[in-house]
């Protein structure tokens, strides 16, 4: 297993990303990862605070139109995330913080699907206030994303490897 990780980490591409001075290498990949985070967590934050009762004039059904923006951010981060993982595979795969982050993100995505089914698919959306279940889902979504951001940030401080503080 470690051999494979080392192979990935020492591949030509990984080396270039990690060691090149080009802004399109490590700096650029990490930049896209942060912008993507702003898109994913940002759109989620709007949906969640709206479900919780903030900005009541905004129609919940209208916020569904922004989900494609969220998914663009998500896939940008999936790709850049894999690259960031590859350049530092031997360190990240043994770092428990990395798995904590993955669990938070998986839970957040499952949570988003539940919000979609329970809130956006509800024929009474915008006609009745969000249910208690919807509000709990909004809260757990906020917790998951806060957890994902926190563990993601801590990856730069806990465990070694190619990183930037």
């Amino acid at each position: 297993m470690m051999d494979l990780l080392l192979k990935i980490q020492e591949s030509g591409f990984s080396q270039w990303v990690r060691e090149s001075d080009s802004l399109f290498a490590f700096a650029g990949v990490l930049l896209l990862h942060t912008i993507g985070m702003g898109f994913v967590v940002g759109i989620n934050a709007c949906i969640n605070v709206r479900i919780l009762g903030f900005a009541p004039a905004v129609r919940l059904s209208a916020l569904e139109k922004f989900l494609p923006v969220l998914w663009i951010g998500f896939w940008v981060n999936a790709v850049t995330g894999v690259i960031l993982l590859a350049v530092d595979a031997t360190q990240k795969f043994v770092n428990p913080v990395f798995y904590v982050k993955m669990v938070f993100i998986a839970a957040a995505i499952v949570n988003l699907r539940m919000v979609k089914n329970h809130v956006f698919r509800d024929p009474l959306i915008d006609k009745v206030p969000p249910s208690m279940k919807a509000k709990i889902l909004a809260l757990t979504s906020i917790v998951c994303w806060l957890g994902a951001i926190t563990s993601g940030r801590l990856l730069a401080y806990i465990g070694g490897g190619a990183t930037v503080k």
């Binding site: 985070m37 702003g38 940002g42 759109i43 989620n44 934050a45 806060l146 801590l154 730069a156």
Partner: peptide, 21 residues
């Protein structure tokens, strides 16, 4: 420092939330 960094990223996401929508 890491705590402030984390809060800085959370704030960034909240700002992006409104800017984007």
């Amino acid at each position: 420092w890491p705590t402030c960094e984390t809060v800085h990223f959370i704030g960034l996401s909240m700002l992006f939330a409104v800017v984007l929508v």
